[in-house]
Nucleic acid binder design. Structure first.
Length: 481
RNA sequence: GGCCCCGUCGCCAAGUGGUAAGGCAGAGGUCUGCAAAACCUCCAUCACCAGUUCGAAUCUGGUCGGGGCCUCCA
């Protein structure tokens, strides 16, 4: 079965066939650098990180471009509020973005261009759009004339009549049609600006993505992605500008990820109910966040709340415990190198799920089956004397790790990861490691004395504080309840 | 007002014509001095109604409920 992707343009799942066999050009709208990234940015970037990784896993040579928009009304406004230069502000948040994405374990895109480094290309596109009669100058601004582009609104599937009521003209704008949008804005005093045929000014919001995508990927390319909220107006306007400029189809597959809700409520800048990635990391490991996001399909809405994150942590812990168990179970045994039927079957099902519009939720479901198989084998009596089971466990472990890598999961050392989670959880409790170990020593003495009443009392006392004791052949360990 | 999406077990969440993945929680069992983990077993007919079909959670129409876009937002 081949890869199928949902294309916003057609509203259907389509067989994925890149323009050039074996190669994929992919552009994803990055951030406007004026604030810290929130969980919505995390989702979008994780989703496209997975798409990038999976395309590579399938053997495609992928050129992945993700931009920084570093000149924009909001950047200027925020910089003015803080009394600093807008370029300084943009740099600050670009750096923060890079740190946040790295913390989430994202693979680096092939190119990460900045809008301000592509002003020449932007001006060239605007000039040509004017020459072609698709744009016009008006008091130093340049607007795109949407009525001159018959395909306008083909992505968002609306019509001009319906949109008209919502469209408005801001004071100072001199547009011919309310839906026309700015390609170039004349500079106001104190704003960053560049020379242009229309006087000093700066790009409008959408044009930078047309310029950067076509610069790196050509006038037609395979995949353009972003959050659902960008369909209109951002991506619609990109199509108008780019196709108006080149006369060619701009993008073959438009891919949009769904929203993140917070406690069942729409998250938005205006409501102010968003969490930054930095805040979230104080409570949850970045991999837990990634795991949570990938347990839903990328187009479905997800609800960001404590319960869901805690469940994600429990699920991820199950993976790491199984991987740790598998590593211990086969330690010291002669490797036989070969694969296994179970491992191969797992990979087949994983690919089948991912081929169906990157269904990570289903793919993770299959990986859970792999976990159960590992655990089942490892707990089989005389496991180490059964070569088929040993081979299966070894192969399943490697398969889970290898497929996990496609999702950006399970790549930490299990023992280290589990230990970190334990200590992080402990720091929120009213007890420390020394106290726990003290109690364990007392209990072990009681057990040696066959004083089980005292032993159980200690167990229960610790449990009240959130600590569960685990008796193993190697001694007594503990974990957070 | 226009356009669009969704409603699957207690919770989360896949499944878009062939008879309901998975996780969490729950019940029983194996193991354990007792526990925990792990493993085994069990646990839904898909908001409602009416159609199409040999067959529908999946298609059509309607009802009820929830949400999104049309304004900055991933």
């Amino acid at each position: 079965m081949s890869l199928r992707v949902y294309n916003t343009l057609s509203g259907k799942k389509e067989i994925f066939e890149p323009l050039v066999p074996g190669k994929v050009g992919m552009y994803v709208c990055g951030v406007t650098a004026y604030d810290y990234c929130h969980i919505g940015h995390a989702r979008a970037n994780i989703v496209f990180d997975i798409i990038y990784r999976y395309l590579q896993f399938l053997g495609y040579e992928v050129k992945y471009v993700r931009n920084y928009t570093d000149v924009d009304d909001k950047i200027i406004q925020r910089a003015n509020e803080r009394g600093i230069d807008s370029r300084v502000l943009a740099e600050e948040f670009i750096q923060a973005f890079d740190e946040d994405m790295a913390s989430l374990g994202l693979a680096l895109p092939t190119c990460q261009p900045k809008a301000t480094e592509h002003i020449d290309q932007i001006i060239a596109i605007v000039k040509r759009l004017i020459e072609r009669g698709l744009a016009y100058e008006s008091a130093g601004d340049v607007y795109f004339a949407v009525e001159k582009f018959p395909d306008y609104l083909k992505l968002s599937k609306r019509n001009m009549e319906d949109m008209r009521s919502g469209a408005r003209i801001a004071p100072g704008e001199q547009k011919r049609h309310p839906m026309d949008f700015a390609l170039w804005k004349t500079a106001k005093p104190g704003e960053p600006c560049w020379d242009s045929p229309w006087g000093p000014g700066r790009p409008g919001w959408h044009i930078e993505c047309s310029a950067m995508s076509m610069e790196f990927l050509g006038e037609s390319f395979d995949i353009h992605g972003g959050g659902k909220d960008l369909v209109f107006p951002h991506h619609e306007n990109e199509i108008a500008q780019s196709e108006g400029y080149s006369g060619k189809p701009y993008v073959k597959y438009w891919i949009h990820n769904g929203f993140v809700n917070v406690n069942q409520e729409k998250m938005s800048k205006s409501l102010g109910n968003f969490f930054t990635i930095r805040e979230i990391h104080k409570s949850y490991d970045p991999e837990v966040v990634r795991f949570f996001i990938l347990t839903a399909h990328y187009r479905s809405p997800i609800d960001f709340c404590d319960q869901n994150l805690q469940e994600a942590r429990a699920g991820l812990t199950r993976f790491y415990e199984a991987l740790q168990g598998a590593a211990e179970a086969v330690a010291g045994l002669e490797p036989d190198g070969g694969g296994s039927e179970e491992g191969a079957a797992l990979e087949d099902r994983f690919r089948e799920a991912m081929d169906d519009d990157f269904n990570t939720a289903q793919a993770i479901g299959h990986l859970f089956d792999g976990v159960r198989a590992i655990n089942r084998h490892c707990t089989t009596k005389k496991f180490r004397k059964k070569p088929e089971l040993v081979a299966s466990v070894r192969d399943l472990r490697q398969t889970v790790l290898r497929l996990g890598a496609v999702l950006g999961l399970f790549q930490s050392d299990p023992r280290t990861w589990l230990e970190q989670q334990k200590l992080a959880a402990l720091s929120r409790l009213d007890i420390d490691v020394q106290q726990i170990e003290q109690r364990i020593a007392e209990r072990n003495q009681a057990r040696r004395d066959k004083d089980f009443a005292r032993s159980d009392a200690i167990r229960e006392g610790l449990e009240d504080k959130g600590i569960v004791l685990l008796d193993t052949a190697q001694g007594t360990d503990w974990k957070i309840k």
